[in-house]
């Protein structure tokens, strides 16, 4: 496979940061764009591996999935559930407005 140099642009960094919900300063955008390019360039080493017939390993060891019986167990008290909330109001978590 021919090695094509992949470059991430500042605009892409901006978009990805928006997806990840992380606000970045101008300086950070510039720094990250530069750092990401050197890191991604390093990651490109895996491009040389032929993987056409290889299955992905999501887990590396053999695991057996199990399901749980549909039996109720006690929940947290409301007080405990809300204890760490930034803002709460009459038994509700108070979240910023959505529009």
């Amino acid at each position: 496979m021919e090695k094509v140099s992949k470059k991430i642009t500042k605009k892409e960094v901006e978009h990805i940061a928006w997806l990840a919900k992380i606000e970045l300063t101008e300086d950070e955008k510039n720094l990250f764009t530069e750092q990401f390019n050197s890191i991604l360039e390093y990651f490109q080493v895996i491009d040389e591996v032929a993987t056409d017939k290889v299955l992905p390993s999501f887990h590396a060891v053999d695991l057996t999935g199990v399901l749980r019986e549909d039996i109720v167990e006690p929940s947290l008290s409301r007080e405990k559930a809300l204890a760490n909330a930034s803002k709460k109001d009459k038994g509700f978590f108070k979240s910023p407005k959505i529009f």
Binding site: D89, F92, F93, K94, S95, K97, I98, F99
Partner: peptide
């Protein structure tokens, strides 16, 4: 929804 000052979550 568009004038609510905040959102309550249950």
């Amino acid at each position: 929804i568009d004038i609510s000052p905040y959102t309550l979550v249950d």
